[in-house]
Design a protein around this nucleic acid. Structure first.
Lengths: 139, 139
DNA sequence: GTGATTGCAAATCTTTTGCACTAAA
DNA sequence: TTTAGTGCAAAAGATTTGCAATCAC
């Protein structure tokens, strides 16, 4: 009867199922943290912290496994901004990022602010997997 | 009397001087490897290898120090493509990159193939340090 | 001389791996 | 049952740091 603003449980479950991922307790819990509501830019360490805070016992290895499985399944996008740290973005629509160098924060650039011309034909024998546009900010 | 195709020694020296970097033996040697002729995309490890091959004894710590000092001085541009590896690009003109995921190779995109619209005004209190555009290729 | 720079080795940090254990189907 | 998934602890990399020795000026 209650209609929450959160994504219903079954939707998360279906999402995993249709990605071919067995909906284990850990994956369900992580998927709920990740896909529950607003878009997020999160590191493995941060997600681990949130899981522990939420009394979900998950090892860091499983966090990494899950993040990569979600990424391979097209549920997440991995964004690399500095050597030695990956962010995972739950917003799968085409968009670009601000990176605040002073704080290490990653943020979506509002749609339309940055426009990219048509992509070139990829070099012989390759396909374009994606395009990352990162606007680095100081101050 | 001989006119080589290589950047003359004094130019490398001046380049360090005007960047405010004391031209030590190591920095001169590294600068010659980096700025001698064509544009390069190189990792710290690769540069270290080249230095040792060329009988230049430099520690990896100094390689990292120098690469960052050169970057801060505007002689190099750091490009991050995957978590845990930085490339340093000697081409400081505005350009974008192909990243070949299968080989880990980074390559300039020929000028004009990718066009970026005008940059947005940076968020309040920040300045744009640079924009990275990376086209990720598979195959 | 004096302060900047270097080398070395150890430390740090993120991410991956191997393998026994557990749980989903 | 059977196979995929998980946890743990150790390993693997890349990068950084602390400090004594060395070098440019």
């Amino acid at each position: 009867m209650t209609m929450t603003t959160h994504r219903p449980f079954s939707q998360v479950l279906d999402r995993l199922r249709s990605a071919g991922l067995r909906p284990t307790r850990q994956r369900l819990a992580l998927a709920k943290l990740l896909f529950d509501g607003c878009d997020r830019h999160i590191t493995a360490e941060q997600l681990h912290g949130e899981a522990l805070t939420g009394n979900i016992r998950v090892s860091l290895a499983t966090i990494y496994n899950s993040l990569h499985q979600f990424t391979d399944a097209g549920l997440l996008r991995e964004i690399v901004v500095d050597a030695g740290r990956s962010y995972f973005d739950t917003n799968m629509s085409e968009h670009h990022h601000y990176f605040f160098e002073s704080t290490g924060r990653l943020e979506d650039i509002p749609p339309g602010l940055v426009t990219l011309g048509p992509l070139p034909a990829p070099p012989e024998g390759t396909t374009i997997r994606g395009v990352d546009v990162i606007v680095r900010l100081a101050g």
